[in-house]
Design a binder for these strands. Structure first.
Lengths: 162, 162
DNA sequence: CGCAATGACTTGAAGCGTCAACTAATCGGT
DNA sequence: ACCGATTAGTTGACGCTTCAAGTCATTGCG
């Protein structure tokens, strides 16, 4: 679909430069998740999403956080989070309890075993991020990447501070 | 996991700038596929991956291509492609046949119905890519994005021209 | 020529994510 | 104080991706 045909006249096709940028982004989009999941799965038995969820819990002072908050942090749906937390609970990495003040709210809390698992997984994960992303880019490119990512993210998901 | 603790001494944790860049990329990585899939699914009943596969076929003069070639183009595994092409075949968008010269090779070919489906889906897809990525970035950022994407992609997937 | 090794897929099972439906708790107007 | 509306989260079914195993064709070595 290169836009050289005459149908759909109203369509603004991508210029060659735009296409190149999009293809480069798309290739990252397709490949990076697999690389991250593969390393974490192999070395720590965790999905990248599971890792992010547990990391989100570890960020708070009491290693606990309500579900919808956590879902936002991990960029996933509440349903997805619910399934994942149930699995993590079954594995003993997390516990769930209703909030004392508002019974609708569920609070997920990282167990000690979960925290240890996260601490054990972190170095390998960070090394992978470094190897495939950070260390192949210059500091200037990292700045650019942050700006680009923020702008796209803001467009995709407007209702958020960031 | 912010690296302020003392365990795992050998680990080079991310600096704040590196972390910011990574978080911005990760947010894109999580959200964009959903946006693209949603639009294509809603308006054309296609997955983004299915779209890319059919686009890969439409690029050749005879609208046909061997499976492993196509898998590389679409950045997916051969197994994934095999399942997807089977579904597309069931829907009448693609046909498969063994190669005449080498019986191991399967060639997938876009049918007329498949081509029409693709042509109908393209404008909406391009508009979405434009809306969420291209049009929120400056030409300079698009150049940067291409460079960044290429470098990461080359690291992730070394055995390829691009 | 024969047959082991390699290459190109295909298949089936298992796990994960999404969607829609559902439950349960709180809010808000009267 | 009541009851419909809203908010928070859970669940089950279905579809898609992955992984490991299997099939069939071809290559190349002895």
């Amino acid at each position: 679909m290169t836009g050289d045909s005459a149908e759909a006249e109203g369509t603004r096709w991508l210029t060659p430069e735009e296409l190149e940028a999009w293809m480069a982004l798309a290739a990252m989009l397709f490949k990076l998740p697999g690389v991250l999941d593969y390393q974490l799965q192999r070395d720590s038995g965790l999905t990248h999403f599971e890792y992010v969820v547990m990391a989100g819990l570890s960020e708070t002072p009491d290693h606990a956080r309500r579900m919808s908050d956590l879902a936002g942090f991990a960029n996933g749906s509440l349903s997805r989070l619910s399934h994942v937390v149930k699995r993590l609970e079954k594995r003993g990495f997390v516990v769930r309890r209703p909030d004392a003040e508002d019974g609708r709210i569920t609070v997920a809390e990282l167990t000690d075993a979960g925290y240890e698992q996260l601490v054990a997984a972190a170095p390998g994960h960070v090394a992978t991020v470094r190897e495939y992303v950070i260390d192949v880019l210059t500091p200037e490119q990292l700045r650019q990447l942050k700006a680009i990512g923020d702008q796209v993210h803001r467009k995709v998901d407007p209702g958020r501070p960031c």
